[in-house]
């Protein structure tokens, strides 16, 4: 086991004109580690996620990623071709709205198989077998493989999106409110599934959520953001059980107890 981080983020800032998206965010992420980024809407957590996943270029700061060959690469200096290759092989991105991450007009099997075909798999039978395997891992019946995601429920779509992302064995997955917009019982199932996959596959993940319960269940570490700044960070249970920053205390005390 290597004792090097997977991702090093240093003083990352993104400004929209004079408005702050996120400012001087720094952290390291290790392999197999799940980092939750919490905060309310407009706190800059999604801006941060988009910068980290190179969907958005930051105004300043650096982020370096340790490639599969062990080489460190600066994300914002990579060519677009390299970044896009990274995004469909070693990374995953799970959108809050599955329609943003799926091809809604092609079958579930093709949705899962697309990344494989993109990296050069040319054996239909093998691609399909892999798709079947992944559908079962995300608890979608094999007989739905030729259905379009349009015919799926919200929870199923989200699970399909996860399978589509994980099929190439990425080492880092970005998730934007992965359980947002789902019923509570569907959420629980998805969370449990995600938790299992993350543990079994040793995935590193950065999960943006406003739901502290999601953060507690999925992550080991968390960062609390407000107005574009990280106001508190640390072990997830430490931050939630012994919140120190005024804003974190407000967040934690705002949770409805059931």
């Amino acid at each position: 086991m290597t004792d090097e981080p997977l991702l090093r983020v240093s003083a990352l800032s993104k400004f929209y004109g004079s408005r702050v998206g996120c400012e001087t965010v720094s952290f390291d992420l290790w392999p197999g580690e799940v980092l939750a980024v919490v905060g309310e809407s407009g706190s800059g957590k999604t801006t941060l996620l988009n910068c980290l996943s190179t969907r958005l270029l930051p105004s300043s700061g650096t982020a370096s990623y340790r490639m599969r060959d062990g080489q460190w690469r600066e994300l914002y200096r990579m060519s677009e071709a390299e970044r896009r290759f990274l995004m469909r092989t070693d990374w995953g991105f799970v959108h809050q709205n599955p329609a943003d991450g799926l091809r809604m007009t092609v079958s579930a099997g093709a949705n899962v198989g697309e990344r494989l075909m993109a990296v050069g798999d040319r054996h239909y039978g093998k691609i399909r077998a892999t798709a079947v395997d992944w559908l079962s891992r995300v608890e979608i019946d094999e007989d739905r493989i030729d259905d379009e995601p349009r015919a799926f429920s919200g929870g199923m779509r989200q699970r399909l999106q996860i399978a589509r992302n994980l099929v190439t064995g990425p080492r880092l997955v970005f998730m934007d409110e992965p359980t947002g917009g789902l019923d509570v019982s569907v959420q629980a199932r998805l969370l449990d599934l995600l938790r299992g996959l993350v543990t079994d596959l040793g995935l590193a993940a950065i999960v943006v959520t406003h739901d502290l319960a999601v953060a507690r269940l999925l992550s080991q570490r968390m960062m609390v953001m407000k107005d574009g700044h990280v106001v508190e960070s640390g072990l997830t249970d430490r931050v939630l059980d012994d919140p120190r920053a005024p804003y974190t205390q407000l967040l934690v005390s705002s949770i409805l107890q059931v």
């Binding site: 677009e80 093709a110 697309e114 075909m117 993109a118």
Partner: peptide, 18 residues
């Protein structure tokens, strides 16, 4: 430009699946 042609095979995959 980036020779990302996986999608072309998605279309053929759909054909075979259907």
């Amino acid at each position: 430009a980036l020779e990302e042609y996986g999608l072309m095979h998605v279309k053929l995959y759909e054909d075979i699946a259907r």
